[in-house]
Design a protein around this nucleic acid. Structure first.
Lengths: 123, 123
DNA sequence: CGGTATCCAAGAAGATACTG
DNA sequence: CAGTATCTTCTTGGATACCG
C-alpha cells in the first residue's frame, strides 16, 4: 500500500473495466482477435477507448500486436503468456460477479429501500 | 459480455482502484477500521473518494457501516462475508501485481525504447 | 481495415472549506 | 471524527473527419 511501490501502477492498470473486458474477450476467444472483432465483442466500447486500452496492454507486455502488411490492413491482438495470466484474474472477477450478482442486486435494493424510508427527518 | 447483464455492473464496481484498495486494507487489517484510519492506510485517497467508495461498497453489501453514537463520532467499516470474498479477488490482484511488476516495468521500458528508436521516419 | 486527430459535452476526481 | 457542500480540474467518452 506504499505510494511509491510500482506494483500500484500495475493494480491501477488492471482496475479498469475495458482492460478486464479485453483480457476476458481475448481469453474467451482462445486466439488472436482483430481490432474490429474486439470492438464488436465489447458492447459500448469506442474506437478511442479500445485503441487506448490495447496500447496500454501492449506497453505492459500483456497483449501482443501483430500487423500483417496486406492490402486491407490486418492487425491481430493476442495474449502474451503474461497477459494470459492476467486474464485469469479477469475471468475470476467475471465469474465471481456472475455468481454473486443476485446477492448484490438484493443488497442494492435493500439499501435503496432504507434510504427512501428514512429520507429526511422532515422540518 | 452482454450489455444488459447486471453482472457487468458488479465488474465495473470492482474495476476501481479505490474499491480494490479499501477491500485490501480491510482484509489486511483483519477487523473493522474507522474512517480516518482507512484514509491513512490509503495514501492519496481524498475524503470524497473514500466516502464515495465506502458508500458504493455498503450499498452493494460488501462493507458494513457501524455508527457508535459517542461524543466524538465513531464509525467503523468492516467486511461482510460477501465483501470478504471480494477482498480475496483484490488480494489476488495485488499479489499478482507485486510478483509481476518486474516483468511489466521491463516491458514498459522496451516499449518506450522501441518508440524512441522509431519516432518518425524523418523527412 | 485500422487506426490517428480534434472537438466537445459530461462525469469523475481533487482541493478546500465548513458542519453536526 | 466523520462526513457534506462547493468549486475547479482532469479524464472519459461520443462524434466526426481524415490518413495509410
Amino acid at each position: 500500500m506504499d505510494t511509491d511501490c510500482p506494483s500500484r501502477t500495475v493494480v491501477e492498470v488492471l482496475a479498469n473495466k475495458w482492460v478486464l473486458y479485453v483480457l476476458g474477450s481475448l481469453r474467451e476467444h482462445a486466439g488472436p482477435m482483430r481490432f474490429n472483432q474486439l470492438g464488436r465483442a465489447l458492447p459500448g466500447v469506442t474506437q478511442k477507448m479500445l485503441t487506448q486500452t490495447l496500447r496500454t496492454l501492449e506497453r505492459d507486455g500483456l497483449v501482443s500486436r501483430k500487423v500483417y502488411p496486406t492490402v486491407p490492413p490486418r492487425v491481430e491482438y493476442g495474449l502474451t503468456p503474461l497477459g494470459c495470466e492476467a486474464a485469469l484474474l479477469s475471468v475470476a472477477i467475471g465469474e465471481w460477479a456472475l455468481s454473486h450478482v443476485g446477492q448484490i442486486l438484493a443488497a442494492r435494493e435493500s439499501f435503496a429501500a432504507a434510504a427512501t424510508t428514512t429520507p429526511e427527518p422532515l422540518d
